[in-house]
Amino acid sequence: MKTEEITHLAKLSSLEVPENEIEALSEALESILQLANQLQSIDTVGIEPLFHPIEMITPLMQPLRPDQVTELNQREANMANAPAQFEGLFLVPKVID
């Protein structure tokens, strides 16, 4: 796998790959894709993808629950996990000057 390809994938994933790790990572991804290439040998003409096992179990549906409040507002407990906050707002670096 080329360096540009790795960098592109990393960018899509919001990850950074340090230059000294690119080679090892490229080898690892190559071998994983080699494994994945075994899939190409199977004839799947006329076979529908099975995106979710639930389809094997029960007819697919999009159930809706009653529109009722079930959770209490836990603003403070939720905000307590924020890496940076101010008066109940999440803080991030300035986006617009």
Binding site: L39, Q40, I42, T44, I47, E48, P49, L50, F51
Partner: peptide, 11 residues
């Protein structure tokens, strides 16, 4: 997509 199709065969 190919993997999802083979998944159905497996099931």
């Amino acid at each position: 997509l190919q993997a999802q199709k083979i998944r159905r065969i497996i099931a």
